[in-house]
Computed example of a mutant assay.
Amino acid sequence: MKKFGIGVIIGVVATVATGVGAFLGFKQKIVKPIADEEAKFDSTRIQSARKAHQAHNPRY
């Protein structure tokens, strides 16, 4: 019975470790590139708004 208990504990730990690894891999491959792309779009939008404002309101 002692070996069975140790096997169950090792199995649970391995399953949890696999789940955490899958979550971190998903976050790294899917979520992070989307967030980076959205940040790039936001910064480009802000820069273009500044340029448009400056082009239409010159300081003389």
Rank of each mutant, 00 (worst) to 15 (best):
A39D: 12
P58G: 02
I10W: 04
V31E: 14
K27I: 04
V13D: 03
I46L: 12
K29L: 14
K2P: 03
R59T: 07
A49Q: 13
A39R: 08
A22R: 07
V20M: 03
A49L: 10
F23I: 03
S43C: 01
P33G: 07
I6W: 10
A22L: 15
H56P: 00
T18L: 13
H56D: 12
Y60E: 02
A55N: 09
I9H: 01
K27F: 11
V12L: 14
V8H: 05
Q54V: 01
G25I: 04
H53L: 15
H56Q: 13
K27P: 00
G11P: 00
T44D: 15
Q28I: 07
T18D: 02
H53E: 12
A17S: 10
F4C: 01
G11A: 07
A52E: 09
I30E: 14
T44P: 01
T44G: 06
S48R: 10
V12W: 01
V20T: 02
S43Y: 11
I6L: 14
Q47R: 10
A49C: 05
V20N: 00
I9Q: 05
G11R: 08
P58W: 03
G19T: 08
A39H: 06
K3S: 09
V16H: 03
Q28W: 07
D42N: 14
Q47G: 07
F26Y: 15
K3N: 10
V20L: 09
D42M: 11
V31Q: 13
I9C: 06
I10M: 09
N57L: 12
K40V: 02
V8W: 03
A22T: 13
P33E: 05
P58Y: 02
S48E: 13
A22C: 10
R59G: 01
D36S: 13
I9T: 10
L24H: 05
A39K: 15
E38D: 10
K32Y: 06
D36P: 00
P33D: 05
P33Y: 04
A17D: 03
A22M: 14
I9V: 13
I9G: 00
D36H: 02
R50T: 02
A55G: 02
G7R: 11
Q54D: 13
A14Q: 05
G21K: 08
P33I: 02
L24Q: 08
V12T: 11
V16P: 00
F26C: 11
G5N: 08
G25K: 08
S48H: 06
K27A: 12
V12Q: 01
V16Y: 05
F41C: 01
M1F: 14
Q54M: 07
T44I: 14
R45G: 09
G5V: 07
P33K: 04
R45Y: 11
I34R: 11
V20D: 00
A39E: 15
I30Y: 13
K40S: 08
K29Q: 14
P58H: 03
K2I: 09
Q28G: 05
K2S: 13
P58I: 11
V16E: 03
K51S: 04
G7P: 01
V31P: 02
G21I: 04
Y60I: 01
